[in-house]
Nucleic acid binder design. Structure first.
Lengths: 118, 118
DNA sequence: TATTATACCTAGCGACTCGAGGTATGGAGC
DNA sequence: GCTCCATACCTCGAGTCGCTAGGTATAATA
């Protein structure tokens, strides 16, 4: 059954986009990224570790990220850094997001094309 | 096989939102909605009938839409109209979309090089 | 020593989209 | 009259992604 009951998260592909963006100009590790998305979006976007880690691994596997372990305060962390491919990917995803966003806004605000009287 | 060679569509839940929005103040039928989304988004968003029809059926089942058959030029069409519940749903989804959108924009533009706390 | 916070990871399920296919009718062209 | 295309409906299977819920391990705190 279509359990299409609210849930509708509009979220598809967003974790990847945000991860790439957060890594511009700085290294971060998984746990930190989870917290950063939660905090910087003021709880609007909360992706669990079960979402973030697999995406990180896939991005690394695809060559968009480079990983290296570092031990800080006796804690082992896996830091990620953007590669050139990752920057390209970020550009592509940002462009796609922008396009989709504009298209949706256009229809939501309607009226522009040939809206009928409401 | 690339496990996760992501196509990143940013599309999740968008068809439902757009359908509800298009039906504000006017009745439409499925085939027409498919074309309307394609045209009004200038091909940025192209959802096939295989996407739209199931959503229409689910929305009707949930009481967000009312359907009635009408024959025009010998063609049988199923017209959909928003119910009060549908308008409420539209309001909810629009709010969610707006929130997600703002959160994503915030991180994308964020002068985030320095901060965890906003 | 027990609990909590940090930090990593995976598996299984469910939900959503896409593409391909299937039915039926009206109109245009030959 | 017959064929082909556009209209108009519908469904199924595959693939992907996100979510929940687990599981491991160590450091700090109570």
């Amino acid at each position: 059954m279509a359990k299409r009951d609210i849930g509708a998260s509009f979220v598809n592909g967003v974790p990847e986009l945000l991860i790439l963006r957060l890594l511009v100009g700085q290294e971060m590790y998984g746990y930190e990224i989870v917290a950063a998305i939660r905090d910087q979006s003021r709880e609007s976007l909360v992706f669990g570790e079960g979402v973030i880690y697999p995406v990180l691994h896939a991005l690394e596997h695809d060559g968009a990220l480079k990983a290296h372990r570092k031990t800080v305060n006796g804690r082992s962390r896996v830091y990620y850094r953007l590669t050139a491919a990752g920057e390209r990917r970020l550009g592509d995803l940002t462009a796609t997001w922008s396009k989709v966003n504009q298209a949706v806004q256009g229809i939501l605000q309607g009226g522009t094309q040939h809206a009928k009287a409401v």
